[in-house]
């Protein structure tokens, strides 16, 4: 599904941000990437859909080497890779529906995009996904009138509209309060299972990583130093991932995590 070989990235003439990463995702399931700020998590995700240009190495998504694609072929490969963002990155002034349909931009013609005349199948899919995440009553609301949790659900739906083969999520809950954050993570988990979709999540919150993922990849200064199941991620492994760095992700936020655990079981509407 996704195979990354010897991936490196350097911005300008700076230091290497990614130092020769190798890893592979075979089938569905949720993989969490943890590591302190500056470990290269965001860069790694953005290399996969080439929002950031890798310096060297190879990335193969669904059998296609995306590292050298250009123009139309690159855009087509991006269709197969959905992405959810930390700051939601919705188009504030457009409606929820327009935001959701913008997930189809890689498929429709420019004229269709301009006039908002999307194929009926796309509209159907948009409505059923919006119903799935409980936003059916917000179809024509402007995106900037929504709450954080609602906006991120729009972000999730937009990514799923692409009919992706793999979903990338870059700190999807970092801008949300603990309760909503928990809801979005469990929604992501459920959708991953329902759609048999491999999901790759950058996450700062170790508790959530352990709770929701099948597999955890620990990144430290651009190198993978842990790769195993959530159960294998013990204190020792965490120390190695976070030792001497800016601090173990959410450790300073223990109360927040307690709260998150307290509200566990709050199902997304």
């Amino acid at each position: 599904m996704l195979k990354i070989t010897d991936l490196t990235k350097r911005y300008g003439n700076g230091e290497l941000v990614l130092k020769g990463l190798n890893f592979e995702i075979e089938g569905p399931g949720l993989t969490a990437i943890i590591g302190s700020s500056g470990a290269g998590k965001s860069t790694l995700l953005r290399c996969i859909n080439r929002l950031v240009e890798p310096t060297s190495g190879r990335i193969v998504v669904d059998g296609v080497d995306v590292t050298t694609l250009r123009g139309r072929r690159l855009r087509h490969s991006r269709r197969a890779i959905g992405m959810i963002f930390q700051g939601f990155n919705l188009i504030d002034r457009l409606s929820v529906m327009e935001n959701v349909l913008s997930g189809r931009l890689g498929y429709v013609s420019f004229a269709q995009a301009l006039t908002r005349r999307y194929p009926q199948d796309d509209v159907d899919r948009a409505f059923s996904l919006l119903e799935r995440v409980g936003l059916q009553d917000y179809v024509n609301k402007r995106a900037d009138t929504l709450s954080g949790g609602q906006r991120q659900r729009v972000g999730v739906v937009r990514a799923l509209m692409q009919e992706p083969k793999i979903l990338l999520a870059d700190e999807p809950t970092a801008s949300l309060d603990p309760k909503t954050s928990q809801q979005i993570m469990s929604l992501t988990r459920e959708l991953s299972d329902e759609l048999s979709l491999p999901v790759l999540v950058n996450i700062h919150n170790v508790h959530q990583a352990k709770e929701f993922s099948d597999r955890v990849v620990g990144l430290r200064y651009g190198t993978i130093i842990f790769d195993g199941t959530a159960a294998e991620l013990d204190d020792d492994a965490l120390d190695r991932i976070y030792e001497g760095t800016a601090g173990r992700g959410e450790q300073g936020e223990e109360p927040v995590d307690d709260m998150a655990i307290d509200t566990r079981g709050v199902a997304p509407s």
């Binding site: 009926q120 509209v123 159907d124 948009a126």
Partner: peptide, 8 residues
């Protein structure tokens, strides 16, 4: 159910 319709 009828098909979904959406206009801008």
């Amino acid at each position: 159910s009828e098909p979904y319709r959406w206009q801008r």
